[in-house]
Design a protein around this nucleic acid. Structure first.
Length: 844
RNA sequence: GCCCUCGUGGUGAAAUUGGUAGACACAAAGGACUUAAAAUCCUUGCCGCUUGCGGAGUGCCAGUUCGAGUCUGGCCGAGGGCACCA
């Protein structure tokens, strides 16, 4: 028997696909389309197992849809702007462009070795000027529509990367990439007005039926809509201030008012500019705002002003006004009204500063003497101690009623607030898309005319400088527009801008005039299935959705509101972690397995500590290089294993044993193939034709259902079952035509998972121009069914009969079943439940 | 603290509308083949007794039902998201 030589076969088919441009597609409205997109990679240098999983899942779908007759767009590109290029360039003294381009060509080769059905003619790279030119056009388009603006703002400053971070890029007060504690800094920044579309982005989620519920909830929470009331508090004191606006979701607790708190950045703070104590307090705030313990403990600190605020519903009541560290300037009006009895945060603050705690809501199961003492009571109940509001049901009736009263008296009005903030897109970085703006001496911003686009990044410059290297490019910075000497914007765009529209570009990758061509996007968009990691649930996916809103805003020609019709988020690839006796991480290829125990390779006597399986990461050294796997076992083995065992949306454990068993399975399939090919050559009677036809049909249904529901792990199980059936049954005689036809169908179903192997086998049986085999519903009916016999709900027997048997007849057959009759012996049958063709439950 | 998801063998997991729990695989143990090893194949899987059979069993406790991994309520545990959002 020949061994299956994956090296030769895989190379053969990869060359074939490349030479024939097998996956090249064109816009063709006469064909039904399917747009299958996986999140494009950052060209870090090498592909990792996460890519293998992501792109294998996508490839299974793309190949399946192609076989079903769809015109499938399955492109690939590179998210190639970003900081790693700059950092690597600093270390290796290469310029970012060269570094990036080398990485792209390496990774492209690696992806090709996976046997992906990609239309490489559509390859794009976001750092290519033919790409970012159009991004600059979009920027100016949005600028014209008023969706881009510049403002001086406190920004999240990453002191290590020396750049600004969006709120979403700050995790636990630290930079998402550098891990450095983020500082606050005031800078002039460009913003995309994403918050303008808060309601649309929220509503749009409703219709995304093929998105994971989890992702939709995360976005919903991020947008953070809340319903409440804006209240205008009159204030009195020594400052020239008459009123302070607050937003609250609980106006009904206004009778529990005991202080007013302002953000340290509130405009009233200007009156304290020269106050040393206030300066100290502000410094205290910026410290507690960022350290981890402070966030965990949540210590509240305040600075008392000499103002008093008046309760609009009870003008006799006057309460102190504080600056407080927990009040955020960019939510609501940067001011909150404090009701300690019914808000834990206000409660903590009141305790610290000895402020009044007045209970105004009692729980439904308590009487009016209820008093809050150890902690606040934020729950539902009935209003008490609230004068004319007493007795109202909280929160439903009481909130609406209070808002009505406040509106009547002109103290406030109903309001909806969103947590979503505008997207700061300026980055003080070299390796990004230049912002197409220039400034005059007064700092007024001028858009660069379209004819002067793209604003190209200067090449081969010295990036070994502190801060933004573009700032040092004095020649580049100077530009003359309409005879006016201007200075270019030196900030570049956040790389999330690049990935917010790349799926449009794939539809028209060569279009020169504009970012895309209308005819192309009308045909291909939206993306039917988008596949990627759940880590992009908020950032990338929300920005992309915003981009569609922004492009369609005031534009009747563009009406794509949602870019991704279907979304699938795959799980991570995990591996066991190892540590040597000195507690250092050890990589899997430094380990030797002896008698089921794991030893250090370089010192066989030393046993390594096996830690939990965790997501593959360089820092824990538990990565496996896909290139090694492909060269040792082949792409098909890698694909088969990465799909097996765990459902695609869950994490998967990578193991040596697992990949070996996938490899062996392909060898077994190869031997089976030889047997079948021999059988096809022989002549036989047709005794068993029905058997194989029926089996194949049942198998096709399973594969079909599992493909449709993304149960790719079950498809692998179906392949194992199919192998074991055919391997047992192949010695039975079948007519060659039937055997060939059915085997061909089975092989076709294998092509999405094992494209090289299955195409090779199809080639051997001389199958040409094949398409996806549909199953025949009428053939699914069984000639015999198994009926479970239960006694008092417990399984006691199994009877095989023809379908549609009536209960009486079944009971007759049952009388011959000694085992079951033993249980029924001399017992009174109280009741029988019969489910046709399935089950008979006898109650005694 | 709030929100979401999930608890099934030693492990990863299967199980249409409630209807044979553990498909398929990994690991382990035993066996077959072999001079031996590798490779391959078969068997076992928790508790009892002798094959065979019986019993328990899907995190825990109740409930609905002829029948619950699946539905309802409560509890316990794990993972993820958000985090002073007024």
């Amino acid at each position: 028997m020949d061994r299956y030589n994956f090296k030769i076969t895989e190379e053969k088919w990869q060359n074939f696909w490349e030479k024939n441009k097998s996956f090249k597609v064109e816009t063709d409205p006469s064909k039904k389309k399917f747009y299958c997109l996986e999140m494009f990679p950052y060209p870090s240098g090498k592909i990792h197992m996460g890519h293998v999983r992501n792109y294998t899942i996508g490839d299974v779908l793309a190949r399946y849809k192609t076989l079903q007759g769809y015109n499938v767009l399955h492109p690939m590109g590179w998210d190639s702007f970003g900081m790693p290029a700059e950092n690597a360039a600093k270390q290796n003294k290469l310029d970012p462009k060269t570094w990036t381009e080398t990485n792209i060509s390496n990774m492209k080769l690696q992806l090709k070795k996976l046997g992906l059905s990609i239309d490489w003619d559509r390859e794009i790279s976001t750092c290519d000027k033919s790409y970012y030119k159009h991004q600059q056009e979009f920027f100016l388009e949005l600028f014209k529509k008023g969706l881009v603006y510049r403002k001086e703002n406190y920004v999240n400053w990453d002191p290590v990367d020396e750049t600004v971070l969006a709120n979403e890029q700050v995790i636990d007060g630290k930079g998402w990439r550098s891990g450095a504690i983020v500082e606050r800094k005031k800078l002039n920044q460009w913003f995309f007005n994403i918050s303008k579309f808060s309601q649309e982005l929220l509503d749009g989620l409703e219709n995304l039926n093929s998105w994971p519920k989890k992702v939709k909830i995360m976005q919903k929470n991020w947008i953070g809509k809340s319903f409440g009331c804006e209240i205008d508090f009159k204030v009195e004191g020594e400052l020239p201030v008459n009123s302070v606006k607050c937003f609250t979701t609980r106006p009904d607790t206004l009778f529990g008012f005991s202080f007013l708190a302002l953000s340290p950045d509130h405009e009233i703070s200007k009156f304290y500019q020269n106050n040393d104590d206030f300066a100290k307090f502000k410094q205290e705030c910026s410290k507690t705002g960022t350290t981890e313990e402070a966030i965990a403990v949540g210590e509240k600190i305040g600075f008392k002003t000499n103002l008093k605020a008046i309760n609009p519903l009870n003008p006799k009541q006057k309460v102190p006004v504080y600056f407080a560290n927990f009040v955020l300037m960019d939510y609501g009006f940067g001011a909150v009204f404090g009701c300690p009895a019914h808000d834990q945060r206000d409660f903590d603050f009141a305790k610290k500063y000895n402020l009044e705690i007045k209970t105004v809501v009692r729980p439904n199961d308590k009487d009016d003497t209820f008093e809050v003492n150890k902690e606040s009571y934020p729950g539902p109940g009935v209003l008490i101690n609230s004068d004319f509001l007493n007795g109202l049901k909280a929160p439903e009736d009481s909130i609406l009623e209070t808002i009505k009263i406040l509106e009547e008296k002109n103290f406030g009005k109903k309001q909806i607030n969103f947590r979503l903030k505008d997207w700061g897109v300026s980055r003080q970085r070299y390796w990004g898309c230049p912002i197409p703006i220039a400034y005059d001496e007064e700092g007024k911003a001028y858009p660069i005319p379209k004819s002067m686009l793209p604003v190209e990044l200067p090449e081969k410059i010295d990036i070994n400088v502190k801060g933004n290297p573009l700032d040092n490019q004095t020649n580049w910075k100077v530009i003359t527009i309409d005879g006016k000497k201007l200075s270019r914007e030196t900030d570049t765009l956040d790389t999330f801008v690049c990935s917010s529209w790349y799926y449009l570009r794939f539809c028209s990758p060569k279009e020169n005039e504009y970012g895309f061509n209308k005819e192309d996007i009308d045909y291909w968009m939206p993306v039917d299935q988008y596949i990627g990691g759940v880590e992009h649930a908020i950032l990338h996916l929300l920005y992309s959705r915003f981009f569609m809103q922004a492009l369609s805003y005031e534009n009747i020609d563009f009406n794509i509101k949602e870019p991704f019709e279907g979304l699938f988020t795959q799980g991570m690839v995990c591996h066991e972690t190892y540590k040597d006796p000195d507690d250092n991480w050890v990589s899997p290829d430094e380990i030797e397995n002896i008698d089921g125990k794991k030893y250090l390779k370089r010192d066989r006597s030393k046993l390594v500590k096996v830690g939990p399986s965790e997501s593959m990461s360089k820092s824990k050294k538990n990565t496996i290089d896909p290139e090694d796997i492909i060269s040792n076992y082949g792409a098909d083995s890698a694909r088969l294993f990465i799909l097996s065992d765990s459902p695609p949306e869950k994490d998967i454990q990578w193991s040596e044993e697992g990949i070996i068993s996938s490899f062996k399975f392909i060898q077994k399939l190869w031997h089976l193939n030889e047997k079948i090919v021999n059988e096809i050559k022989k002549k036989h009677d047709s005794d068993h034709d029905d058997e194989i036809k029926k089996y194949t049909n049942k198998y096709l249904k399973k594969i079909h259902d599992n493909l449709e529901s993304f149960s790719y792990n079950k498809i692998v199980a179906n392949l194992y079952e199919m192998y074991s059936f055919l391997n047992k049954q192949i010695d039975k005689p079948y007519t060659n035509k039937t055997l060939k036809e059915n085997y061909e169908k089975i092989l076709i179903t294998m092509t999405p998972v094992l494209p090289h192997f299955a195409n090779e086998c199809l080639d051997i049986i001389e199958s040409k121009n094949f398409k996806w085999p549909e199953y025949d519903k009428s053939m699914l009916k069984e000639e015999l069914v198994n009926i479970v016999i239960q006694i008092n709900g417990k399984k006691r027997g199994l009877i095989q009969t023809k379908p549609n048997i009536i209960e009486e007849k079944l009971f007759e057959i049952l009388k011959n079943d000694e085992k079951v009759m033993k249980y029924l012996d001399h017992k009174n049958i109280k009741r029988k439940i019969y489910i046709k063709d399935k089950l008979l439950n006898i109650i005694i």
